[in-house]
């Protein structure tokens, strides 16, 4: 692991998220073991690894979603723009507005499409007038490449959309709170290939504005959308580097076995 880090030096100055010595315990399992990583801004970072390797748990540490699970215990340091998110002064509610999240299964609220997108701005008080709110809704939907499909039925229930549309709605919902970082937990695993392609295209767009961290079980997807890739195995981050480099020339034998399909 040290090798990996020396190959890709920890440039804390430019890193959006800096993680040091992160450990996560669930009840009696040690889910994430001693992870150090720097995640750059305005780029897509992919987390890959066999299922149960701790990549999703790691992702949920970045916006303190693990706080909602009573049995989870997180230690170590996560800095966003140099600020430790476990500092007692940090409010997880504000943190999560800054670090948006998209989940594995599309989970639109049982509300209208408009209300789904407006939910975040409303609870955080980001807009003052109805017109402003409408504007945010429209822009978020446009940015999620959904506007043209739903602009005529903003009052229809969000649950009535197709799977891919639902997931893009969830992305629109996440970017409506004006986050700086977007976490995506296998966002395409429940979608068909066409919808997957649309989302991947969208992710590529999003990296112009956000630091995107995406967990994926598909190496092809990681290769297609990400600039940086981290490989997790048994709770440890085995290797981290430029996506092209990691897939073509893995430094660690475990990474090599995984990308060549021998473990996973």
């Amino acid at each position: 692991m040290k090798d990996t880090l020396t190959e890709t030096p920890a440039t804390t100055d430019t890193a959006k998220i800096a993680v040091r010595g992160l450990q996560v315990h669930y009840a009696d399992t040690h889910a994430v073991r001693d992870v150090d990583v720097d995640i750059p801004d305005k780029a897509v970072t992919a987390l890959i690894g066999p299922s149960g390797c701790g990549k999703s748990t790691f992702l949920r540490c970045l916006n303190r979603m693990n706080d909602t699970i009573p049995a989870a215990r997180v230690t170590g340091e996560v800095r966003i723009d140099g600020e430790d998110i476990h500092d007692p002064r940090v409010d997880p509610v504000q943190l999560r507005a800054k670090v948006g999240m998209v989940f594995q299964k599309p989970n639109p609220f049982p509300k209208s499409i408009r209300d789904n997108v407006a939910y975040g701005p409303k609870i955080h008080g980001l807009t003052r007038t109805r017109a402003e709110l409408d504007e945010v809704v429209e822009k978020s939907l446009r940015r999620a490449a959904l506007w043209d499909e739903v602009k005529d039925r903003l009052n229809a229930p969000g649950t009535g959309l197709s799977g891919g549309q639902q997931q893009r709605l969830c992305i629109a919902r996440a970017i409506a709170t004006a986050p700086e970082i977007l976490l995506m937990d296998e966002p395409c695993s429940a979608l068909d290939p066409i919808a997957t392609a649309q989302i991947e295209e969208l992710i590529d767009e999003l990296r112009n504005r956000f630091a995107v961290v995406i967990v994926t079980h598909s190496m092809q997807q990681a290769a297609r959308v990400s600039q940086r890739t981290a490989f997790f195995h048994l709770g440890r981050m085995v290797e981290y580097g430029d996506t092209g480099e990691l897939f073509t020339n893995p430094a660690d034998p475990r990474t090599e076995s995984y990308i060549s399909g021998r473990i996973g």
Partner: peptide, 10 residues
Amino acid sequence: LRDGSLGLGA
């Protein structure tokens, strides 16, 4: 649904 809402900072 809970995760979705909490993840938005509610």
